[in-house]
């Protein structure tokens, strides 16, 4: 009985996963192999053409999503690491306050926040409108409806998910260990490169996972900030499902995206997630 207790305690969790993850996935997998239309109904035909069609028609958007997601992740890493570092090592007793400030935007709905960026970046909005009025920017300058706007939006929206895991990893670095490196003739830069950075890599690893996946699949930023020429795969899935009611195609697209992301994560984990890499980084 004692030995069973942990399993029993985990049971609700497993049930939750079974019901809300496995069942919908199975249903979606089945839909993705059906053919038909919303009016006459769909029938199971085990056709993989949904997948091949989806891939050939929307490969541009798929590649674009991966590129935007990747660019946003990189931007988050470059912005987020220094912030996490600063809070962890210079935050003093205000650390919790800084973390709270970081999460403050989350008290406002995600979509609303993104729309506000739309206002802010509008061609004749408060920012650019004013600057153009003063003649500081050319009249045809615009940010909205560019790749830059989408990537910036993605970066903004998921930045805390990059910062938090890196912060947690840095917070656990014993300051004495850094001092030991300096005591052993390492300059500040060398101590960072050979001790702090390698010890924070698990946080970087987690941060990249937590941001790359949702950023790549996100439809909102592309829709609100990207205009018509920056459509991402999330937008395609959304319209295919909600507007065009082509459930099989939408399901096939979702699965394709999931497969691509899973393979990417798997390769990434194999390459970066091992102890050997962490050790090599310290050399």
């Amino acid at each position: 009985m004692k030995r069973l207790t942990p399993y029993l305690l985990a049971l609700p969790g497993w049930m939750w996963l079974a019901i809300f993850l496995v069942v919908p996935m199975a249903a979606m997998a089945s839909v993705s192999l059906q053919t038909g239309n919303a009016i006459d109904g769909f029938a199971m035909t085990f056709s993989v053409s949904n997948y091949t069609d989806a891939l050939s028609r929307y490969s541009t958007q798929l590649v674009r999503s991966l590129a935007y997601g990747g660019a946003a992740t990189l931007a988050m890493l470059l912005i987020g690491y220094p912030v996490a570092y600063w809070i962890a090592f210079k935050g003093g007793h205000r650390k919790s306050m800084y973390l709270f400030l970081l999460l403050l935007p989350f008290f406002v709905s995600f979509v609303l926040r993104t729309i506000s960026w739309g206002f802010l970046l509008a061609d004749d909005g408060i920012l650019f409108g004013t600057l153009k009025g003063w003649g500081l920017l050319p009249a045809d300058f615009h940010v909205l409806a560019t790749a830059f706007a989408v990537i910036a939006g993605l970066t903004y929206n998921w930045l805390p998910f990059m910062i938090l895991p890196i912060y947690v990893a840095l917070e656990r670095v014993d300051p004495r260990v850094v001092e030991a490196a300096q005591d052993l003739y390492a300059s500040r830069t060398a101590a960072f490169r050979r001790v702090v950075l390698p010890l924070s890599l698990p946080g970087v690893f987690a941060g990249v996972l937590m941001t790359f996946v949702p950023a790549t699949a996100d439809p909102v930023n592309a829709q609100v900030l990207g205009g018509t020429s920056n459509t991402m795969i999330g937008n395609i899935i959304q319209t295919t499902y909600l507007t065009n009611l082509q459930y099989p195609t939408a399901s096939a697209l979702s699965f394709t995206l999931m497969a691509v992301l899973l393979v990417g994560i798997f390769v990434y984990a194999r390459v970066l997630g091992t102890e050997n890499v962490l050790e090599a980084a310290a050399r």
Binding site: A180, A181, R194, V195, A282
Partner: peptide, 28 residues
Amino acid sequence: PNKRDVNMVFQSYALFPHMNVWDNVAFG
């Protein structure tokens, strides 16, 4: 400290957790 010719043994040892014994010792 990195320019001083003294070395310290910390109370908590402060070994580099991500390095093996050899790399720890060879660090300086």
